[in-house]
């Protein structure tokens, strides 16, 4: 399994042709306590850059964009009752959606972990 990142602070873990997407530890630390998540419908086709989810803290609402194109195969329904998982475990239990990739060549445009870490250092 390979994990990629975006400059918009999403992570993408690839397992075969399925990509699991979430937000990074840096993103959750900036957002503060997450209180609500709006997840997409299963089966929805997302193009790269489309709004995939909305994540709300008390004072802020942010859109999570699809980092790659794909069809929504699963959503993390546990977040609905326990949005705090995004703060506690952003890069594992706090995942948002699983996408079935429709344009795997887009992966080449993403950052690897090292490049993302370097990017965060600059912020």
């Amino acid at each position: 399994m390979t994990t990629y990142f975006t400059k918009d602070h999403e992570w993408i873990r690839i397992d075969g042709d399925v990509a699991t997407v979430g937000i990074t530890d840096y993103a959750q630390s900036q957002l503060g306590d997450v209180v609500y998540v709006e997840l997409p419908e299963i089966g929805k086709a997302l193009a790269k850059g489309d709004e995939a989810a909305v994540v709300e803290s008390v004072k802020a609402a942010s859109e999570v964009f699809a980092p790659v194109s794909g069809t929504v195969e699963a959503v993390n329904v546990a977040l609905t009752d326990e949005p705090g998982k995004i703060n506690e475990s952003p890069e594992a239990e706090g995942w948002f959606v699983k996408l079935k990739l429709t344009a795997s060549d887009e992966l080449a445009e993403l950052l690897d972990e090292e490049a993302y870490k370097a990017f965060v250092e600059t912020l």
């Binding site: 503060g32 803290s57 008390v58 999570v64």
Partner: peptide
């Protein structure tokens, strides 16, 4: 995601 840095602490 859109980064909104207004996420100041909201619990005591």
């Amino acid at each position: 995601m859109t980064m909104n840095t207004q996420g100041r602490p909201t619990a005591p």
